[in-house]
Design a protein around this nucleic acid. Sequence first.
DNA 1: CATAAGTTGAGGAACTACCTCAGGTTGCTT
DNA 2: AAGCAACCTGAGGTAGTTCCTCAACTTATG
Lengths: 209, 209
Amino acid sequence: MTTARPLRQDAVRNRERLVQAAREVFRRKGLDAPLEEIAREAGVAIGTLYNRFSSRGELVDAALGPLAQRAVELAERAAKAEDPWRGFVLFMQESCELMADDRGLADVHRSSVPATPVIDAAQKRLATLKARILTRAQEAGELRGDIESPDLALLTWAIASTMDATRQAAPDAWRRHLAVLLDGLRADAAHPLPVPALTGRQLRNATPS
Amino acid sequence: MTTARPLRQDAVRNRERLVQAAREVFRRKGLDAPLEEIAREAGVAIGTLYNRFSSRGELVDAALGPLAQRAVELAERAAKAEDPWRGFVLFMQESCELMADDRGLADVHRSSVPATPVIDAAQKRLATLKARILTRAQEAGELRGDIESPDLALLTWAIASTMDATRQAAPDAWRRHLAVLLDGLRADAAHPLPVPALTGRQLRNATPS
DNA sequence: CATAAGTTGAGGAACTACCTCAGGTTGCTT
DNA sequence: AAGCAACCTGAGGTAGTTCCTCAACTTATG
């Protein structure tokens, strides 16, 4: 086992600055933002970034861990809402709000992320909760029954795309998009769907933007 | 006025090959595909491409003109369908089918195109027809009344995104997405929308993917 | 103050795509 | 069939991006 020697104080400080900067840059530009920009934002040389984080993944983990946690907590709340349909709507809306505010977090939802332990765990947990939220709303008879988890993933994905497109011009435009989708997701609006849902495998094979 | 001397035969042949190749490559990769790939597909040197087409726009015009025309014809048919709602659904469905088959054409719908005369004209015509199709369906009481043209543009955009994502893994997945959207667009499914629609200006300022 | 830990940032490597132009080839005219 | 202009070719220059390294310098710490 590797005995980790404590970091020097300036190194600790720089690490913290880098994490902050990464959070901010990822928020603005998504998880594939140039690392050099993060170093600049942190007021630190690029070499220092590579000293502290040997890969983008480590930095993503450090920066997005807390945020991903918030997304999970949100899902947990929604999964235990008294009214299953309201829980579903709540989840969709607040997830989207988080995504609208943070491109990096949107990348997590879209799974367009370099796999990292922390993010992976959050995604797994999210997947479970999403399935529960969906099933509950269906069993309550409010959410249409022919929708499956992968559909939800795809729709979320689509909303993330309109967000990316309209973020500058009209930061709230996605709310209309989501509202129309939600209306289409109600059981009483349902007309038969033309093709079967994606399998999990197909969804994983879907290429991020 | 410039007297255009006729092209030499080999030049004519190469030009035609380039247009064919461009159609194919744009179809697969979208309108920002590398020009070198088009030249390769045409079995012609890159210099020749630049001899025949001084800009990407000219090539786009030559390659997509006919296809854009088809999209317009489709809209014209839909705009004069006996049943306005069926016309609307038809338009959405067939437009999406064209987009699913041709990434380049999807770029036209998304307006993520270097402005060219031919494409511009097609887009203008399409915009008019779309507005008519929408209005008719609304006046028939089938399409929800709180939807406006820019909404439609955004939704089409979103579907194009899911297409891009799932094209390989599940080429028909977008049909489910569209179906849910259409259900949400019916007048009898409508719940009030939370924010105003995009203005035309905002839509134009929206950034392509 | 000695030393190891840490920082720095210019610079090399690897892509990608664009566009040019000198030199070779070929169609077309007479 | 000769000669010329039109055409084709593709290596190579330009430009932008991002990644990552490392020798030289600085500084925290015991």
